[in-house]
Amino acid sequence: NQASVVANQLIPINTALALVMMRSEVVTPVGIPAEDIPRLVSMQVNRAVPLGTTLMPDMVKGYA
């Protein structure tokens, strides 16, 4: 199964993503693939992302 990017902490709106904020986990539904974690670093989220939430492409500015 494909691992997705999951929030490792609460990520406030407009926060630039850092490695420590993300982990990979096999979840349903599938979100952003875990292999894209390096690409996500320094991109901003466009909403608050609670701990344990799967990151979806529409949550990250400039990802989709």
Results as ranks from 00 to 15, higher is better:
Thr54Val: 10
Asp36His: 14
Leu17Met: 06
Val27Pro: 00
Ser24Thr: 15
Asn1Pro: 15
Pro33Val: 06
Arg39Asn: 12
Ile13Gly: 11
Arg39His: 13
Thr28Gln: 12
Leu19Glu: 10
Val49Tyr: 03
Pro12Trp: 04
Met59Ile: 05
Ser4Arg: 00
Val6Gln: 03
Val26Pro: 07
Leu51Arg: 15
Gln44Thr: 15
Gly62Ser: 08
Ala16Cys: 07
Glu35Thr: 15
Ile37Phe: 03
Leu40Thr: 02
Pro57Val: 06
Arg47Gly: 05
Gly62Ile: 04
Gly52Lys: 04
Ile11Tyr: 00
Met21Trp: 04
Pro29Phe: 03
Gln2Ala: 10
Asp36Ala: 09
Ile13Trp: 08
Leu40Gln: 01
Leu55Asn: 01
Ile13Met: 14
Ala7His: 01
Asp36Lys: 10
Leu55Phe: 10
Ile11Thr: 02
Lys61Leu: 12
Ala16Gly: 10
Val27Phe: 03
Leu19Ile: 09
Ala48Ile: 14
Gly62Ala: 08
Thr28Gly: 07
Gly52Leu: 04
Pro38Ile: 09
Lys61Gly: 10
Pro33Arg: 09
Ile37Ala: 09
Ser4Glu: 00
Ala7Met: 05
Val6Asn: 00
Glu35Ser: 15
Met21Phe: 06
Val60Trp: 02
Glu25Arg: 12
Asn46Lys: 14
Asn46Cys: 05
Met56Leu: 14
Val60Thr: 02
Leu19Cys: 06
Val5Arg: 00
Thr15Gly: 05
Ala16Ser: 08
Arg47Pro: 03
Val60Leu: 07
Val49Asp: 03
Glu35Trp: 13
Pro57Met: 07
Val60Phe: 04
Ile13Lys: 15
Val45Asn: 02
Val5Asp: 01
Leu51Gly: 13
Pro33Thr: 07
Glu35Leu: 11
Asp36Ile: 11
Pro33Glu: 04
Lys61Thr: 14
Leu17Lys: 00
Val41Glu: 06
Val5Pro: 02
Asp58Ser: 13
Thr54Ser: 04
Asp36Asn: 12
Ala64Lys: 05
Arg47Tyr: 07
Leu55Arg: 00
Ser4Gly: 04
Ile11Cys: 03
Arg47Ile: 14
Pro38Met: 10
Pro12Ile: 05
Leu51Cys: 06
Ile11His: 01
Thr15Cys: 04
Asn1His: 13
Val30Lys: 15
Val27Ser: 04
Leu10Lys: 10
Ala16Asp: 09
Asn1Cys: 06
Ala48Pro: 12
Leu55Gln: 00
Asn8Met: 08
Met21Pro: 01
Leu10Phe: 15
Gln2Lys: 10
Arg23Tyr: 07
Asn14Gln: 08
Met59Cys: 04
Val20Pro: 13
Val26Ala: 08
Asn14Leu: 07
Pro12Gly: 07
Arg23Glu: 06
Thr15Met: 08
Gln44Ser: 12
Leu55Asp: 00
Pro33Leu: 09
Glu35His: 12
Val49Ile: 15
Gln2Ile: 15
Val41Lys: 05
Arg39Val: 09
Leu40Phe: 01
Leu17Phe: 02
Leu55Pro: 01
Leu55Trp: 00
Gln44Cys: 05
Thr54Gln: 03
Asn8Lys: 11
Met56Trp: 05
Val6Arg: 03
Thr15Asn: 04
Met43His: 09
Ile32Pro: 01
Ile32Lys: 02
Thr15Asp: 03
Met56Ile: 06
Leu51Val: 15
Asp58His: 11
Ile13Tyr: 11
Val30Cys: 05
Ala18Leu: 15
Ser42Leu: 08
Pro50Ala: 15
Pro57Glu: 06
Gly62Cys: 05
Val26Phe: 08
Leu10Asp: 11
Asn46Glu: 07
Met22Val: 08
Asn8Arg: 12
Asn14Ser: 08
Ile13Val: 15
Lys61Pro: 10
Tyr63Ser: 03
Ala34Ile: 08
Asn1Leu: 15
Arg47Asn: 06
Leu17Gln: 01
Met21Asn: 06
Asp58Lys: 09
Thr54Glu: 00
Ala18Pro: 01
Thr53Phe: 10
Val45Ile: 07
Val45Ala: 04
Ile37Gly: 04
Pro29Trp: 03
Gly31Phe: 03
Ala34Phe: 07
Leu55Lys: 00
Pro33Met: 08
Thr53Tyr: 12
Met59Phe: 13
Thr28Lys: 13
Pro57Asn: 05
Val6Ser: 01
Ser24Lys: 12
Arg47Phe: 07
Leu40Lys: 00
Gly31Asp: 01
Val5His: 02
Asp58Trp: 13
Pro12Asn: 07
Val27Ala: 07
Tyr63Asn: 03
Ala48Tyr: 12
Val41Pro: 01
Gln44Ile: 15
Val45Leu: 09
Asp36Met: 13
Thr53Met: 12
Ile13Asn: 15
Gln44Gly: 05
Thr54His: 02
Arg39Asp: 07
Asp58Ile: 09
Gly62Lys: 07
Ala18Trp: 06
Val49Cys: 05
Asp36Leu: 13
Met56Gly: 04
Gly62His: 08
Val30Gly: 10
Gly31Gln: 02
Pro33Trp: 08
Gln2Pro: 15
Ser24Asp: 10
Arg39Ser: 13
Thr54Leu: 04
Val5Lys: 00
Met22Ala: 00
Leu40Ala: 00
Met22His: 01
Leu19Met: 13
Glu25Val: 11
Val45Pro: 02
Glu35Pro: 08
Val41Trp: 03
Val49Phe: 03
Ala64Trp: 11
Leu10Val: 11
Ser42Gln: 08
Val60Pro: 00
Pro33Lys: 07
Thr28Glu: 11
Pro38Ser: 10
Lys61Met: 11
Gly52Ile: 03
Val45Gln: 00
Ser4Val: 01
Ala18Tyr: 06
Val20Met: 13
Val27His: 03
Pro50Lys: 10
Leu10Trp: 14
Pro38Thr: 10
Asn14Trp: 14
Pro12Arg: 09
Val30Tyr: 13
Gly62Trp: 07
Leu51His: 11
Ile37Asp: 01
Gln9Phe: 06
Thr54Lys: 04
Glu25Phe: 07
Val41Tyr: 04
Thr28Arg: 09
Glu35Tyr: 14
Val5Leu: 03
Ile32Phe: 02
Ala18Arg: 13
Arg39Tyr: 12
Ser42Tyr: 11
Pro12Val: 05
Val6Trp: 02
Leu40Arg: 01
Pro29Tyr: 03
Ala18Asn: 13
Ala48Phe: 11
Gln2Phe: 13
Leu40His: 00
Pro12Met: 07
Val41Gly: 02
Leu17Ser: 01
Ser24Ile: 08
Asn46Phe: 07
Ala18Ser: 13
Gln2Ser: 11
Met21Tyr: 07
Thr15Pro: 00
Pro38Asn: 09
Ser4Asp: 00
Val60Lys: 02
Met43Thr: 04
Gly52Met: 05
Ile32Leu: 05
Met21His: 14
Met21Thr: 03
Asn8Tyr: 04
Ala7Leu: 04
Ala48Gly: 07
Gly62Thr: 07
Ala64Tyr: 13
Ile11Pro: 01
Thr54Pro: 06
Met21Val: 03
Pro12Cys: 05
Ala7Gln: 02
Ala7Ile: 06
Ile13His: 09
Pro38Gly: 10
Thr54Asp: 02
